[in-house]
Amino acid sequence: MKIEVLGTGCAKCKSLYEAVKTAVNEKGVDAEVVKVEDIPSIMKYGVMSTPALVIDGKVVFSGKTASASEIKGML
């Protein structure tokens, strides 16, 4: 599984990235977590408000953050 956190470096983007890492560890799933900060890659997903969560190339949500337990439910 490939999980991408899209964001240009705002505080919310960092907290989402941390929450995703916690969720992946706690659930013990085999996933690669990447932080995507460059604009062209973010725009490729058509995301206009950051942070956004992308799982296996699909935008799960954008413009908000989520807690580790909420993310566990999405994995």
Partner: peptide
Amino acid sequence: PFCSCSAVPLFIG
């Protein structure tokens, strides 16, 4: 909803 940290993707979009 608007946050200045999303101004760039918003503008491009």
